[in-house]
Design a protein around this nucleic acid. Structure first.
Lengths: 229, 229
DNA sequence: AAGGTAAAATTGGTCAAGCCAATTCATCAT
DNA sequence: ATGATGAATTGGCTTGACCAATTTTACCTT
């Protein structure tokens, strides 16, 4: 689910416009928006539709509606860079989710890391290095590395989440954006980051491992996004 | 405890009724609800109002609306593999995963929590209290609470993970063991834990919120396991 | 009888106009 | 000034209608 739906529901579009408008006009917390009637006319939609958008924004926590009084901004609206996300997934969201999940998982894993598991990770890393050298796309090896760590949590549910999130990158979500630069340069950089992760895990240092993992995923996100125009 | 409030917005009441009705009738995932027109008449409200309730339920993840077709209980694609069920997946693992994911998510959410979002959470909590008082199983309200928090991260991927993990509890894994754990006693305890979470969120205290969430999920796990002897 | 296609019925999507109730605000009497 | 009062404003909700997508039905072709 969730790709570029052409005709999104009207209330979502309207909610988007309101978010954008609010942000571009630099309205701050507590500011009062125009009345429902005015907003509806301004955005060129009917009042019921405008109303549906407001309910969405209210649930979302962007807006507060006081009956008989008016519509007020709840608090700071400025989301970082993801203005265009609304209800749709985005690569940034995906990578943020991975960072959160894998960043937590690796802490668990670090505490349970066995020598055998470390050896397996090392082997996986070597395989990835060979793939890069051979000019092959080390995607499978990349996945294996992340899954091995996830499995070390000893929790199959977590492992499944990590696997699903990894797959998501190749699902319908990014299908259209898949202009990826599979240059050996980006892969060798990813390889180095994996090495840093393994290093931290070898020392059974959970925090350092987490930091390394998050750095890796962040860099990965950047590589992914920069690859497309 | 029946501290009901005075004038709740209509769409919230309607959403409540739908949640309750759906659950008391034992409708399962993917089930199709009556048409908007029928539902509206059945509940004694106008179609626009019914519509607003549906939007709330849609955002909440309870319902999926397919234009021209109908209103369906959110089924969602069963991900890639239910296979993980067979091997070693246990309630403990599930709850550990939830603790990890939701424990991280709530930190994100705490930093973005608006007054309106807090109000929505409060509303959800009240709805849950009413359900408990009425002797109904407040499962839908429980889910709504967790999803609202997840939604507050602003990351739809994270929201989806939380929703999936929540649903997992009712998969084939625990289907037959779910008999006795639904006493009003255990639910009112869960309610208190939710209250603690909301309290921490009100104070925008990420760490305390995380602690409260993890305590809740841990207690939830214990209740779940103890119920099936 | 089987299959496919077009029309009809169903359903969500949206709009228009209006009435009610709560809130706000200007006005006026004190 | 001050406080009460009534008009304007604003959200809350309803009725009724039309459009577009989907689903179902009926009919025609093979």
């Amino acid at each position: 689910m969730s790709k570029s739906d052409e005709p999104r529901r009207l209330y979502q579009q309207v909610a988007d416009q309101i978010r954008g408008s609010v942000q571009s006009k630099g309205l701050s917390k507590g500011a009062r928006l125009p009345s429902e009637r005015d907003l509806a006319q301004e955005l060129g939609v009917s009042r019921p539709s405008l109303r549906e958008a407001l309910i969405a924004l209210e649930i979302e926590g962007t807006v507060e509606i006081r009956g008989g009084s008016g519509i007020y901004l709840a608090a700071e609206v400025p989301r970082h860079a993801e203005v265009a996300h609304a209800l749709g997934e985005s690569p940034s969201e995906l990578m943020q989710a991975r960072s959160m999940v894998e960043g937590s998982a690796i802490i668990l894993a670090a505490g349970r890391m066995t020598d055998a598991a470390l050896a397996a990770l090392k082997e996986s890393l070597d395989a990835m290095a060979r793939a890069v050298d051979a000019g092959r796309d080390p995607l499978a090896e990349d996945k294996a590395f992340h899954l091995l760590i996830a499995h070390q949590t000893g929790n199959s549910v977590i492992a499944k989440i990590v696997a699903d999130l990894f797959e998501e990158r190749h699902g319908p979500l990014a299908a259209r954006l898949q202009v990826r630069s599979a240059t050996s340069g980006t892969w060798s950089q990813a390889l180095e980051e994996h090495q840093a992760i393994l290093e931290a895990l070898s020392q059974r240092d959970p925090l350092q491992a987490q930091a390394a993992m998050c750095r890796h995923l962040e860099a990965s996100r950047r590589r992914w996004l920069d690859a497309q125009v």
